[in-house]
Each structure stands twice: as structure tokens, then as C-alpha cells.
Design a protein around this nucleic acid. Structure first.
Lengths: 253, 253
DNA sequence: CGTACGTTTGATCTTTCTCAATAATGGTGG
DNA sequence: CCACCATTATTGAGAAAGATCAAACGTACG
């Protein structure tokens, strides 16, 4: 799981929501790439620059991030293993945000040009990328709602639910428990709150039996209650029916 | 300006950042469409539904919006005349947010299928739409930063600057003054604050000579100072060099 | 085994919200 | 054109959520 064939990952990812032909898949699998190991904190994309390659996250987590002029940081989104990092910079002149490794991990770098050519030659691949981009935009919209209109408690619960759901869909979480690879300060930057406040809210969720923490691992004793507190409805993730439901009903199968 | 040929608008919009061939343009211009007048508040897209057509805003303003389970509203983005509304729902099963008219105005409705077929046949059009989607995603990211990490004052100033810049780029604002078609409550919903607080901040900006308001029209006596207060740097709008600078330096030409 | 980083806690201060009342404003029917 | 109604804007006072500052406590890793 942590050492997959990079391009098969991409094929699987893209093919999930958009139909790809045999030929499309072959073309993707033929892409050249370089595999690279990175430490936590390493930059995958830098604001203002135009990276010469497109990146796929093979293992480890990463996050998008922007800074205000005052130097405060906002984490824009979280990237989980298996996700492609920068379709944005593939077609825009320069990056408008940073992407950094959250944990150490491995990435595959595909030269920008090759992917661009592939898209030009294979319309379906371009469409698949468009769809992935649309889904990511949907997640951005939900984050705007989350940060703009939910109090710290629901807000924190919401990103925990989102992460659980996405990891589950990717086969990386067991029964809605997972290793949360973030410090409370990073969590705070994702929520637009301070680390101190995140700490207090975390404890309050714990006191209410909504989450259980041991070190960095987190689980949800009562997922349904958790989603209610979080005001979480995973439809915005556009995962399709197989993952849209909660695990208890999914477990019926 | 308020009564343009709808599809030429689309061609102009799409062609701005991506090269389209003669043939591509002809295909776009041949798309069937229906023109429709709408009142303020009318829905263009409804959360959960899949609209059977793609919409272009010919005149008037619109906004994207989501609701929390508690019923509080967050405005996700503003749409200005000339913009296409729903590439999202063009490829995803169902909408994950609402789009409503902010003012009364006119739209052109293009059948979903026809646009999908066009994209399948003309790769460059698909790429142009992908690029527009990427730019919109960039704006979402900036809003996440804005709402998450800027105080009410900078936050409000920031959306005022963004709107000024986008309208300017579209040729709809004179020297960074424009008709702001939003109530303070709508503004509040865009900022994740209350209307009362927006009112106070608005007055404070006015008291400091950063904005001048008469009815709904707003202007900026000192644009440079305004952008500093707003922590505004328009690069995230990806408008290209012609619009990235402030009006005073642009006026040199 | 010590240092750096992350977590936890308390006390105090700010920002923003809530509730409530009053003043403008714009649009509508007569 | 005017009176009226419904929004919208403005203002004040008190309450709450969250920020800030500061210190103590853990813990992982070199």
C-alpha cells in the first residue's frame, strides 16, 4: 500500500469518476517519472513559482497553505496518500499557494510537458483531470462554509470527519479511526483558530465521548453522533454511493 | 455591454487564457441556447440537483452559497456579468451548493449535453474550461485564507478589492469605483461575520478615508492604502499582466 | 539524559455576537 | 406624485467565543 506503482495509482484515481479507455490508461502508464523521498516540511510547490513537474503523493501526507502579509498561515486543504498534488500549476503560469509535506513520504514527479502533451492527445484524460479539479473545488467550498459559519467545535469535528471519510474511501482508515498526522498548531491553521483553542476544543470533544485520542491516533466511538456535531454530510466529497454512507450501514454488505 | 451576444461572451472569456482555434470558436458560437430574465434571488443552481443546462450570466450579479445544518448561510463566491456559472454541475452528478441571482439580470442557458459533446469534440475547449475552473479554485483558496486568517477589517477590505479588480478587468468599473450590489447582510454572509459587525467595520473604513459610499456605490480614494489594509495582492486572480497592477501604474500606458 | 518541540492549563483581554430599538431607504399601489 | 410598507442600515449595551500571554508539563529523539 505504501509502495504502489505510481502511475497505476494515477490511473486508478482518475478512472474512478471518469471513464478511461485502454488506450488512455496505457498512455498514462507510459509517462516518465522520478520517485523521490521527502522529509516533513519539504516544499512540493512554492507560491509564485511554476514547478517543472506534476507531483503524485505516493505515501505520507501533505497540505496546501497560504500566508497573509502578516505572516499568519492558513492551511487550505489536506492531501492524502495517492492524490495528485498540482494540476493547478500544470496550466497556470505560477502557483498561488504553497504545498508542503505534512509527514515524511514519497512522491512521483512527472514532467509537466509530458502530462500536458498526454492531455492534448487524450481528451478523456483531460476530462478526468477536470473532474478531479471540480471535486477539489467542492471541498474548498465546504471549507469556506466550515470556516465561515461553524463554531470551533463543529469546525474541528468537521475536518476530522472529512479526513476519516476520505481515508476510508482510499482504504487507509479502519472503521473510522486513523493516525492523525497533524500537530494541534497545524490543525489550528487549518481551522483558522489558535492552537490553544484547538487544544481546548479537542479536550471538550474527548470529554463528551465524541473522539478518543492516544498519541496521534484518533477514533470515533459514536460516528453518527460525531457527524451530527460536525454537521457533516459527505456528499460534497463526490465519492459516489459506495462511500457516501456511514460505516455502520456500509458494514451491512 | 448589458446585452451582448451570449456565446461571443463565452468565447471571449474562454479564449483569454487558453488558445482557441477558429474551429473551436465556431463550434462554441453554434451552440444552442435560451435567453432568460431573472429576478434577484432566483436560483440558477440548487444544492442536490443536477441542472439540465449550463448557465452564462449575461447581465446582473449572482453568488454561490451553501447552508449549514443550522441554516446559517455562507456566500462562497460572487459571479459578475459575463461569467459562466456552472462548469461544476456539467460533470458532477449533483450540485453541492446553490447559485442565486444577487440582482435581477439575464442569463443564457446552454443545454448540458451540447456543451459536453462540444468538449468531447474540441479538446482545446475542455482545456479552456479546465483553466477557468483552476482560476476559480484559486479564488476559493484565497477566500479560505481571507476568512480563516484576516480580521474583519482586512477581510471586508479584501473582498471589496477583489471585486474592484475583477470588475475592472471585465471593464465594468471606473477607476476602482463601482456599484456594490450587496446588502450588508449578504456581505456579512460572504465574510462569515454578522451584518451588525459588517456595518461597524464599513463605517470604520469610511471614517479612515479608505472607502467612500453613497447609496450602493463605493469607491476608493487611496487605492494603494486600501490594498495595504486589505492585504490584497491580485495575483491569485490570474488575470495576466494587464490587470495585475494597480490602476495608477496601469494608467501610465 | 537533555533539548526542542508539542501539549496542557490558567488568567486576562479583544473581537465579535446577540438582542433590541431606531432611523433611512426604496419600491409600490393609489 | 404621495403615503405606506418592507427592507436595510445604524446604534447601544451586555454576553460569549476566541485570542493572547505565560508557565508548566510531556515526550521523542539525538
Amino acid at each position: 500500500m505504501t509502495d504502489p506503482k505510481p502511475l497505476e495509482l494515477l490511473v486508478r484515481k482518475l478512472g474512478l469518476r471518469a471513464p478511461l479507455s485502454e488506450d488512455d490508461c496505457r498512455a498514462i502508464l507510459a509517462l516518465p517519472f522520478v520517485r523521490k523521498s521527502l522529509e516533513a516540511g519539504a516544499y512540493l510547490v512554492r507560491d509564485g513559482e511554476a514547478p517543472p513537474h506534476s507531483t503524485i503523493l505516493l505515501s505520507g501526507f501533505a497540505y496546501r497553505q497560504k500566508l497573509t502579509g502578516m505572516g499568519t498561515r492558513q492551511i487550505i486543504s489536506l492531501l492524502i496518500p495517492g492524490e495528485a498534488v498540482d494540476f493547478q500549476s500544470l496550466f497556470l503560469d505560477s502557483a498561488d499557494h504553497n504545498v508542503q509535506m505534512l509527514t515524511r513520504g514519497e512522491v512521483a514527479l512527472v514532467p509537466r510537458i509530458d502530462l500536458q502533451d498526454l492531455i492534448r492527445a487524450h481528451g478523456a484524460v483531460g476530462r478526468a483531470i477536470l473532474i478531479k479539479t471540480l471535486v477539489e473545488a467542492s471541498i474548498f467550498r465546504e471549507w469556506i462554509l466550515n470556516i465561515g459559519r461553524r463554531d470551533a467545535r463543529a469546525r474541528l469535528a468537521h475536518v476530522l470527519c472529512e479526513l476519516a471519510t476520505r481515508l476510508e474511501a482510499q482504504g487507509l482508515a479502519v472503521e473510522y479511526g486513523y493516525e492523525l498526522p497533524m500537530t494541534q498548531e497545524q490543525l489550528a491553521d487549518a481551522l483558522g483558530r489558535t492552537a490553544v483553542h484547538v487544544n481546548r476544543v479537542l479536550k471538550s470533544l474527548e470529554a463528551d465521548g465524541l473522539i478518543v485520542r492516544t498519541n496521534r491516533s484518533i477514533s470515533f466511538p459514536d460516528w453518527n453522533r460525531m457527524t451530527r456535531v460536525a454537521d457533516f454530510d459527505g456528499r460534497y466529497l463526490h465519492l459516489g454511493r459506495q462511500h457516501a454512507r456511514n460505516p455502520s450501514s456500509a458494514a451491512e454488505t
